[in-house]
Design a protein around this nucleic acid. Structure first.
Lengths: 207, 207
DNA sequence: AAGAATATCACAGAAACAGGTGATTGTTAG
DNA sequence: CTAACAATCACCTGTTTCTGTGATATTCTT
């Protein structure tokens, strides 16, 4: 399995390379301090897996992931970094990284390399937790604002872009009643216009 | 570490119990064929981790996760099942499972138990891949409507409930310009009012 | 039976918005 | 260079929405 390493600190890069090359199954075919020339390096060295640091001078790891995945999505990229904060994590995953391993988890490096090579994804447990949480975050509140059935109904029509007039004829009530209901809805959601209400309703899965 | 097992097949349940009890660090304090009485069982046996199958008669594993997490979110739940399909996976994660291990990955059971106990999440590589993919899939339609940077910026402010006036002063542009931008945005999104635009923007993860 | 919550309707003024037309200035890509 | 696009501004008109202040009828709870 051919691997390229991107890591700006020279001693880390070299010891990583040595250590990986010691494993019979893996072979480091290149190691670079940043992603300035990823395109050429991918073409020239044809790695199957890229081990990617994030914080690197000139062209960083997240930009590197974007470029590599654009070039060839089949090249697997395992982030290998000290960063655990969302600012780096989610952009990296969105860019298309196949895994995200913390450097403290170096024991899991070989299994992780095998996992991503097999088409799976590898993540440190804490990272996986963050991903799951963000995945769930969408489905949180529920009854918090205690809208009545009618209010929910009208709010839902509002999110569909209906005007007061359309809502009134859909529900067989007058526009003034629609207006009254929406007034109550705004008060309950602590907003003061339709767009904010719709935003809140959708984000918090009220409708 | 005290563990409860939910697994409908008796021989699997028993051999799992034996095997886990053999490990010095873990102790099975209960094993049941379905989730009919989770509430009582949680109260009586006070487990730290629940190992949860999905397909069980009467009350299944996903319903079990919902009930347990409602009762006490601190109890960690590791799904342990043969199902790899999205129909079971995502509902389980949404319900609040802390990990999802395939039965074929039984080698990873003890590390996974330790990971979830430590507050992390554990997933089989293939499962993690699905989660990452779904995570990314949301942020795809980014270019579908081809909004410009400025348009996205203004749309985002609109979703926050800003009025034209507020947007104009936030962006240091005139209200007429805001109006022009929004007109273009509505045209691109094929809507004709702010609420519909906001609804579409959030639902399709444009902002 | 009284009180609370829900759903309905009305009037009215001020503020905000939608849509049409038209124009200028950069920047970018062919 | 020119055409297309992005971003900006202006004016105008009619419509829609927001907000305040009321009122009535029904149902549900205590």
């Amino acid at each position: 399995m051919n691997i390229i390493i991107y890591e700006d600190r020279q001693n880390q890069r070299q010891s990583l390379e040595l250590w990986i090359n010691n494993h019979p199954q893996f072979s480091v075919v290149g190691a670079f301090p940043n992603c300035k020339n990823v395109e050429a390096e991918m073409h020239g060295l044809k790695p199957e897996i890229v081990l990617m640091d994030i914080d690197m001078p000139e062209v960083g790891g997240i930009e590197g992931v974007i470029r590599i995945k654009e070039l060839n999505p089949d090249i697997k990229i395992l982030m290998f970094t000290a960063f655990e904060d969302d600012d780096k994590l989610f952009p990296a995953l969105e860019a298309g990284a196949d895994g995200y391993l913390l450097k403290t988890d170096i024991d899991s490096l070989f299994p992780a390399l095998k996992d991503v090579h097999a088409g799976g994804a590898a993540m440190s447990p804490g990272i996986a937790k963050k991903v799951l949480d963000s995945f769930r975050q969408q489905k949180t509140s529920d009854k918090k604002y205690e809208l009545t059935k009618r209010e929910r109904e009208i709010l839902e029509l509002l999110t569909k872009g209906y005007t007061y007039k359309e809502i009134s004829s859909t529900c067989y009530i007058s526009m003034d009643t629609v207006s009254t209901h929406l007034r109550h809805i705004y008060a309950k959601l602590h907003v003061n216009c339709g767009t904010a209400a719709v935003a809140k309703a959708i984000k918090e899965r009220i409708i």
